[in-house]
């Protein structure tokens, strides 16, 4: 799990992997584009796979470029909400609600 060497050997981004990824990311890829996409993604994986060999023993992951800590906001309530401006695209709303096709629980 910690190594990506094995990925260099063959095609990683096969149809099933792409299917899983498009499910998670809510995309749909037309059947006709899958071959090209899978080739490109494999090339990208090869490129990013180069980090595998980097000597990172003892290195901490760096999530932020600067060593700051989080500033905190006072618990003050501001009432400056303009629902009309926020809902300028009225095709997506009804009576101030956003609407989507009926969700089944």
């Amino acid at each position: 799990m910690d190594t990506i060497d094995s990925h260099h050997l063959g095609k990683i981004m096969d149809k099933n992997t792409i299917k899983k990824l498009t499910y998670l990311s809510k995309l749909s890829i037309p059947e006709s584009d899958i071959d090209e996409l899978s080739k490109n993604l494999d090339n990208i994986l090869k490129l990013i796979g180069e980090i595998d060999a980097a000597p990172t023993d003892g290195m901490l992951p760096m999530a932020h470029p600067l060593d700051f800590t989080q500033p905190l906001r006072d618990d003050v309530c501001r009432k400056n909400i303009n629902r009309d401006a926020n809902q300028h695209d009225s095709s997506k709303t009804k009576d101030g609600y956003y609407t989507v096709p009926k969700i089944l629980d």
Partner: peptide, 13 residues
């Protein structure tokens, strides 16, 4: 999400 407000649609508050 409110499911019984509109026909065929769920309403989001």
């Amino acid at each position: 999400s409110i499911h019984d407000l509109f026909d065929g649609e769920s309403a989001i508050d």
